[in-house]
């Protein structure tokens, strides 16, 4: 696929790491600036979509098989709900993070970080998997 498009191949290769790092920045800096799990997941997914568009679906699946993505999509929801259950057992309400650490503010901070990670995982896996499915249908 696209064997004779050297400009696209080279630029996308150069851009990939920056897109991934930007996605991680958006994920973990979402508490302080605009961003969060939803946006980070989409950006992370779009880097793999770019890879699949330029180098072909087969190569993209070698980097990131769809089985892994299926597990990740479920894992994200599990992390989210699991955080709620943990706060259950530490003596608080479902999804109330106050008791996750000694200090309620720290607890909230940890809780939000973990929950956003779960959201990011699910959204990333969902977007990439949907693209894989649509792109793989034609052949």
């Amino acid at each position: 696929m696209m064997q004779r498009k050297p400009i696209l191949r080279v630029t996308s290769k150069v851009f990939m790491p920056f897109i991934l790092i930007f996605a991680l920045y958006v994920q973990f800096h979402g508490d302080f600036g605009p961003g969060g799990g939803f946006q980070a997941g989409v950006i992370f997914g779009s880097s793999f979509i770019l890879y699949a568009l330029i180098f072909g679906l087969h190569d993209a699946k070698l980097v990131l098989p769809s089985v892994v993505l299926e597990v990740m999509a479920a894992l994200g929801v599990l992390i989210y709900a699991g955080t709620g259950v943990v706060s259950f057992f530490t003596g608080d309400n479902f999804l109330n993070y106050n008791s996750l650490a000694h200090d309620p503010l720290h607890g909230q901070h940890y809780g939000i970080l973990i929950v956003e990670l779960g959201v990011g995982l699910t959204v990333f896996a969902a977007m990439t998997l949907i693209f894989y499915t649509f792109a793989g249908r034609g052949r």
């Binding site: 969060g36 939803f38 989409v42 959204v123 969902a126 977007m127 949907i130 499915t133 649509f134 249908r137």
Partner: peptide, 20 residues
């Protein structure tokens, strides 16, 4: 709206799958 946008694309994808 932030959450609605992401849910919106997920449901749109489902609709497109039905179209295919």
């Amino acid at each position: 709206i932030l959450t609605a946008i992401v849910v919106g694309i997920a449901t749109t994808a489902l609709g497109l799958a039905l179209v295919v």
